[in-house]
C-alpha cells in the first residue's frame, strides 16, 4: 500500500462500487431509456448506476490521503479469511442445487450437510456422516411427511421420479 492510501478498505470498496455501477450500466446498455414522461426500462437503472459510481468515488477519495500523513488502518492488516470454510460452505450449497433435481432431496441434503460440516476444524468423517443422516431424516419427516412438500426424496437417477 502506497503512501497515499489511508484506508485500503475504503479504496477497495470505492473501486468495487464504481466497478458495479459500470457493470450494471453495461448489462443494461441495450435497454431502451425513454424520456421522463414515459420512462423506458433502462431509465431508472442508468440513473442508479450513476449514483452508485458517484458514491463509489466519494468512498474512494475518503480512503486516499492527500495530506501525506500515511497512517493505515490498523484492522486492515488483520483480515484472516477462512478460505477453506468459505469454499466448502459455498460448495455445499452449489452441490445441493446440482443434486436436488437428479438425485432427489435426500442425497442432496446429505451431501450439503456433509460437505459444509467439513468446513469446521472439528470435522470428523463419522460426525459428518451422522449429522448428514440426522438432517436427511429430519427433512424427510418435517418437509415431506409433515408439510407435504412436492419434492421427491430420491430423484430420477436413483429410481425415483
Amino acid at each position: 500500500m502506497g503512501r497515499f492510501v489511508r484506508s485500503p478498505k475504503d479504496v477497495v470498496t470505492g473501486l468495487l462500487l464504481i466497478f458495479l455501477g459500470a457493470w450494471f450500466a453495461w448489462l443494461g446498455s441495450d435497454l431502451p431509456i425513454g424520456r421522463a414522461i414515459r420512462m423506458g426500462p433502462g431509465y431508472f437503472p442508468l440513473v442508479l448506476c450513476g449514483i452508485l459510481a458517484a458514491l463509489g468515488l466519494i468512498v474512494l477519495l475518503t480512503g486516499l490521503d492527500f495530506g501525506g500523513d500515511a497512517e493505515a488502518d490498523e484492522d486492515a492488516r488483520q483480515i484472516a479469511i477462512p478460505w477453506q470454510g468459505l469454499a466448502l460452505i459455498t460448495l455445499s450449497v452449489v452441490v445441493f442445487g446440482l443434486a436436488v433435481r437428479p438425485l432427489g432431496l435426500g442425497p442432496a441434503m446429505g451431501l450439503a450437510v456433509f460437505i459444509s460440516a467439513a468446513a469446521s476444524r472439528r470435522f470428523s468423517l463419522k460426525g459428518g456422516a451422522i449429522m448428514a443422516a440426522v438432517m436427511v431424516a429430519f427433512a424427510w419427516a418435517v418437509f415431506i411427511k409433515g408439510l407435504g412438500l412436492p419434492l421427491p426424496m430420491l430423484g430420477p437417477w436413483l429410481g425415483g421420479y
Binding site: 450449497v93 450439503a112 449429522m131
Partner: peptide, 10 residues
C-alpha cells in the same frame, strides 16, 4: 452450522 446450511438449502 451444517444443520443451518441444510435448512437454508431446502
Amino acid at each position: 452450522f451444517p444443520l443451518i446450511i441444510g435448512f437454508c438449502c431446502i
